[in-house]
Nucleic acid binder design. Structure first.
Lengths: 153, 153
DNA sequence: TATTGTTATACTCTATAACTATA
DNA sequence: TATAGTTATAGAGTATAACAATA
C-alpha cells in the first residue's frame, strides 16, 4: 500500500507512451499476471502450456513446426520438450520418412493436463482483462492478430 | 528460406489463437524486432532506452518511481541503473530530504544518447509495424493503453 | 514498522555457434 | 549443401528473499 498511486501518473512518458512496443511490453506483463491469476496452482508456465496445448491440437507435430508457430527458437524448444517429456506429458517419435525429425504426441497425462489448464484458461473468457468491454477486447485481439500475421480466425 | 510458410498457418491453435496473452506475446516479439530494425546499431536495448528516456523527461526522478511506471522490479532496476551509470550516461544523487532515495539525472552524454535513439524511434512513426493502417495502429494503441491503465494521452 | 535501495540466487527466455545425423 | 535437432554458453529479464540504512 501507499503505492504512491498519483506518482505513477505524474511520470512523463512523452511519445514513449504512444510507442506500440512499449505499451505492448506493459500489456504482456499485465496479461502474464492475468494468466497466473487464473491458472494459479496449475503447474505450468505460459510457454509450457502453449506447447502442450498446440501438441494436443496437432498430434504428431514436429518440433520445428511447433517452434515456428509459437516463435520459440529451436535451442529453447529442445529444453522445453525435454522437460515436458521428463514430466511424462509427451512422447517423442522419429518418423521413418525423415529420420532427422521428431514427432510429438501427448501422453494421457499430458492430455488431461492440457485439458485441465485450458478449461480454466479458456472458460467464458470474461476474466480480469483490464477494464476492457467485450467488444473492445475483440477489436484489440483482431488488431493484434493482424499485427503479428495470425489468421484472424 | 524454405521456411515452409504454409506449415505455420496449418498448425491449429484453437482458442489459444484468441487468447489475449498468447497473441500479446507474439506481438511483443514482433515489436522487439521492429525496435532493433530501427535503432539497429544504436547500443541500447528496449529496457535501457526506456529508462534513459523517462529520466530525460523527468530529471531527478527516483528509482522507485521509475520502476513503478516502467513495471521494472527494484532488484532489476538497480542493475540497469548501475550499468547506465558506468557507461557515463546518468548520475545518482541522494537527496537530503530522504536519504534512502536516489535521484537520477542524465549526463550530457546520456542526454544526447536519449535524443539520438528517440529521434529515429519516434520519427514519423510509419515504421514497419506489421500491415496495420494508421488508424488501426491508433485504435490498437488506445485499447492497449486502456488495458494496461495508461492515460490515453 | 515500513520504505529505498542493494545483494545474491535462481529460473525463464533469448541469441549464438558448434556439433550430429540425416537428407 | 541444407535441414532437424542437440549441446553449450552467454546474456536479458524476472522473482524472491535477506539485508542495511533511513524514515
Amino acid at each position: 500500500m501507499a503505492l504512491d498511486a498519483p506518482c505513477r501518473d505524474t511520470v512523463a512518458l512523452g511519445p514513449l507512451g504512444q510507442s506500440l512496443g512499449f505499451v505492448l511490453r506493459l500489456a504482456q506483463l499485465t496479461a502474464y499476471d492475468d494468466f497466473f491469476a487464473v491458472t494459479d496452482s496449475l503447474r505450468f508456465k505460459p510457454g509450457e502450456f502453449s506447447v502442450l496445448w498446440v501438441i494436443s491440437l496437432n498430434p504428431g507435430i514436429r518440433q520445428s513446426q511447433l517452434g515456428q508457430r509459437l516463435m520459440i527458437k529451436r535451442a529453447h524448444m529442445t529444453k522445453l520438450i525435454r522437460q515436458l517429456e521428463q514430466r511424462g506429458l509427451l512422447t517423442r517419435r522419429i518418423p521413418d520418412s525423415d529420420r532427422r525429425a521428431i514427432e510429438l504426441t501427448l501422453t494421457p497425462a499430458g492430455q488431461s493436463a492440457a485439458k485441465a489448464v485450458s478449461s480454466v484458461l479458456f472458460a467464458g473468457e470474461p476474466k480480469p482483462e483490464g477494464g476492457l468491454s467485450d467488444s473492445e477486447r475483440k477489436t484489440l485481439l483482431a488488431l493484434l492478430q493482424k499485427y503479428v500475421g495470425l489468421p484472424a480466425a
